[in-house]
């Protein structure tokens, strides 16, 4: 197993209130799988993704990556493991506006030696996601779909074992979303594991496996629960989607020219 969660509970305490974001979650994902976790807003999807991405630790229970309990890592080690083994794709892309598409893809390796090799790989990745002619474009010169593909390139630059995608199609129209999902799906051919959390049910169509998350509990796949309007009782806590990038949905039915 690449990553597992065993009896994982996550609680957030704010003042007198305690919010139970996840409750007794058990999960095991194999290398090369495309798993979609579907759930309504506030169901704990982003919290689960944060735990799987080593951005947070569970209140109780155990998360293991490649057999190692992630709680045994120090902060520095977690940072290092994230860099080596995990790629992130965010709903609002999380691109650095002052860097070009190429630099954004290269960002995770920018502090490493041999920047030329990184740049070469970044250019290859951008070409692979159809942005070979957009290397020197800044994020504000790209459409939503193009930005998300740059973000996928960035997630893959370190040749990760695991890509975690938080609402990867959330800001995209259906066609562009499907293209982005296809790109993610292609990466599983190289034994990369993809875990996507979403409330868009069509994402499930690209997955090997769909898990439902309702009120912090994983449930067997259920059509009703997968509907975006099925509602959730929790407040949204610990999300992964960067809210700072105010890009709205780009209408890009055809080509993705800006």
């Amino acid at each position: 197993m690449l990553i597992t969660a065993e009896n994982v509970t996550k609680r957030f305490t704010g003042g007198a209130d305690t919010v139970q974001a996840l409750e007794s979650v058990d999960l095991a994902i194999e290398a090369g799988e495309f798993v979609t976790i579907v759930g309504p807003s506030g169901s704990g999807k982003s919290t689960l993704l944060n735990l799987l991405g080593l951005l947070d630790t569970p209140t109780t229970g155990t998360v293991t990556l490649n057999g190692t309990d992630v709680e045994s890592y120090s902060d520095r080690e977690r940072t290092s493991v994230r860099k080596e083994a995990i790629g992130f794709v965010f709903q609002s892309y999380g691109l650095i506006p002052t860097l070009t598409a190429l630099e954004n893809v290269a960002v995770p390796r920018m502090l490493e030696p041999n920047p030329s090799a990184t740049e070469e790989r970044a250019a290859d990745l951008l070409a692979a996601v159809g942005l070979g002619d957009r290397l020197d474009h800044y994020p504000d010169e790209l459409s939503g779909g193009q930005k998300q593909r740059v973000a996928i390139g960035r997630a893959m630059v370190n040749e990760p074992d695991l890509i975690l995608a938080d609402e990867p199609t959330g800001n995209l129209d259906r066609d562009t979303g499907e293209r982005v999902l296809s790109t993610l799906l292609e990466s599983t051919d190289d034994d990369v594991t993809v875990v996507a959390v979403t409330h868009d049910e069509y994402v499930a169509g690209f997955s090997d496996r769909v898990l439902n998350l309702v009120d912090g509990r994983l449930q067997p796949a259920d059509a009703d629960a997968m509907r975006p309007d099925s509602g959730g009782s929790h407040a949204d806590v610990g999300g992964m989607a960067p809210a700072g990038d105010a890009d709205s949905v780009d209408a890009e039915a055809g080509g993705e020219q800006q």
């Binding site: 902060d75 080596e84 992130f88 999380g94 506006p97 960067p242 700072g244």
Partner: peptide, 19 residues
């Protein structure tokens, strides 16, 4: 404050506190 999310992204993709 303005770059909070960006800094979060950098931390997520492997930038350490010292970086």
């Amino acid at each position: 404050r303005e770059r909070r999310t960006e800094i979060g992204v950098l931390r997520a993709v492997g930038y350490g506190r010292l970086d």
